[in-house]
Each structure stands twice: as structure tokens, then as C-alpha cells.
Amino acid sequence: TYYTVKSGDTANKIAAQYGVSVANLRSWNGISGDLIFVGQKLIVKKG
């Protein structure tokens, strides 16, 4: 599943929404920190 980042989103918020850990969200998308951008497409695997 892909999720498009919206204004006000955070890695924590997206992870919680899908029931996954922030560490997994980072791993699936090659993100090292919490910096995400509006319009960015993230791979999300439901927990």
C-alpha cells in the first residue's frame, strides 16, 4: 500500500494510523530520520 504524505502528517502519525512501528515505516522507505515531505509517497504495510 502507498500513502501520500499530507500537510501536518508525521512519521509517528502515519505509523499509528496503519498500526505499524515508525522503525518499520522508515525501513520500508529508506528514511533515516523523521523528515518526510508533503506529496511524498510512502510504502506502508498494514500491521
Rank of each mutant, 00 (worst) to 15 (best):
V44C: 03
T4P: 01
S27Y: 11
S32W: 10
W28T: 02
L35H: 12
F37C: 10
L42W: 02
Y18G: 02
Y3T: 03
A11L: 15
Y3R: 01
Y3A: 03
W28I: 04
K41R: 14
F37M: 09
N24D: 15
L42Q: 00
D9I: 01
K13V: 08
V22H: 03
T1E: 13
V5H: 02
K45V: 11
G19N: 10
I43S: 04
T10S: 08
T4W: 11
G30K: 11
K41N: 09
T1R: 11
K46G: 12
L35W: 10
Y2A: 04
K46E: 11
V20H: 01
V22K: 05
L42Y: 01
Y18T: 06
R26V: 12
N24G: 06
K6H: 07
T1V: 14
K13D: 11
K6L: 09
A16Q: 12
V38F: 05
D9Q: 01
N24V: 12
K13P: 01
A23K: 09
N24E: 15
Q17I: 13
T4N: 06
A15P: 00
N24S: 11
I36P: 04
G39C: 05
D9F: 02
A23D: 13
D34K: 07
G8L: 05
K6V: 11
L42R: 00
I43A: 05
V22C: 07
R26F: 14
G47R: 10
K45Q: 13
Y3W: 03
I43E: 04
Q17A: 13
Y3L: 03
K6Q: 13
K45S: 14
L42A: 00
V38W: 05
K13A: 12
V20P: 00
V22S: 05
L25G: 01
A11F: 15
G30S: 11
R26A: 10
I43D: 02
Y18S: 05
V20M: 09
Y2P: 04
L42G: 01
L42C: 02
Y3P: 00
I36Q: 02
Q17L: 14
I31H: 04
T1L: 13
V38P: 12
G30N: 15
Y3G: 01
S27E: 15
T10P: 02
G39T: 04
S21L: 07
V38D: 06
S21D: 09
V5D: 01
V44D: 01
K46Y: 13
D34F: 08
A16C: 12
K13I: 10
W28K: 01
V5W: 05
A11P: 15
A23H: 10
S32E: 15
T4V: 14
G47I: 13
A16G: 08
Q40G: 03
Q17C: 12
K13S: 15
Y3F: 03
K45N: 12
D9W: 03
I31L: 15
Y18M: 09
T1N: 10
G33A: 09
V5N: 01
Q17E: 12
F37I: 11
V5T: 05
V38G: 03
T10R: 03
A15K: 01
G33L: 14
T4E: 09
Q40N: 05
S32M: 12
T1P: 09
N29E: 01
G19L: 07
W28A: 03
S32G: 08
V38I: 11
G33Y: 06
G47V: 13
D9N: 02
G30Y: 08
N12T: 14
L25F: 04
I43Q: 08
K6G: 06
K46R: 12
S27T: 11
T10H: 04
K6C: 09
D9Y: 01
Y18D: 00
G8Y: 05
G47K: 10
T4S: 07
A11V: 15
Q40Y: 04
V5F: 05
G33P: 07
L42K: 01
G39H: 04
T1C: 15
V20R: 00
F37R: 09
W28E: 02
I31N: 05
L25S: 00
S21M: 06
G30Q: 11
R26H: 08
V22M: 10
